[in-house]
Design a protein around this nucleic acid. Structure first.
Lengths: 135, 135
DNA sequence: CAGTATCCCTCACGATACTG
DNA sequence: CAGTATCGTGAGGGATACTG
């Protein structure tokens, strides 16, 4: 599968760094999606329960109708949650995590815990940096 | 510290959903930072070794000088990597993860693994969604 | 209630040129 | 080599008004 004419690359490299660094890297696309302004919050709030559109609106401070709609549609498109419409008037719509959504929520948990554990250290590092680089 | 006149909130809620959903939430600020377009890639590539500016430029396809500089400065400011300048000409600068940077790298690893495991499922879900919503 | 539609603006980012 | 400075664009996203 490898072309013999392709020159051997001499950058330092080993099996521990097998990330795909191309701009269209799938992993980074998915990370960009789940780490956007609202997706993580939605996934977190739906853990273990279903919620309606208005409930999510009230639980997420600062989100607009427009952005909540877009976020929910993207997560639905990615198969991370399902949208169930009850055909009543006024409309009743419930959002629920899929199996994949729940597994993502589990995976995110350690990262959330890391930020909580280290937020003071990061704040301290920022202060130190700003003091030593003030103009 | 709590005002007695603040009304008791009656939304469904339990101890499993204790996220801070305010717009200025520290956790989300940090997640926004580490999940931006280039930071994860830099942290990943620096795992277990130091690299120079030019090496990172060549390893990260598509990054501009400007964005690599900004990304590295932010990560340095957050205490996730250190910048070591060798006072020679031409300049020689090396970037190395700090202890905190290495611990973040460890924490990110499961999330990267998750995206790799589920990227086919997500692509499939997107296709199914697009087919059923085409118009 | 759960959305769409439209306007508008910021700012993140790329491109390019220059420098100690 | 490792940056800084400047300009231009466009996608992200807020505000507002309207609707089945």
């Amino acid at each position: 599968m490898e072309s013999p004419s392709y020159p051997t690359y001499t950058e330092p490299w080993d099996s521990a760094h097998q990330w795909d660094t191309r701009a269209d890297c799938e992993v980074r696309q998915i990370l960009d999606r789940i780490a956007d302004k609202w997706s993580l919050l939605v996934i977190s709030l739906l853990d273990g329960r279903s919620l309606r559109f208005g409930q999510l609106m009230r639980l997420i401070d600062g989100v607009s109708q427009r952005m909540l709609t877009i976020t929910l549609r993207q997560l639905e498109r990615d198969g991370l949650l399902t949208r169930h419409v009850y055909p009543v008037s006024p409309p009743h719509v419930e959002y629920t995590l899929t199996e994949m959504g729940r597994s993502l929520r589990q995976t995110i948990q350690p990262l959330v815990a890391w930020t909580e554990t280290h937020q003071d250290a990061i704040a301290h590092a920022r202060n130190a940096y700003d003091r030593s680089h003030e103009g």
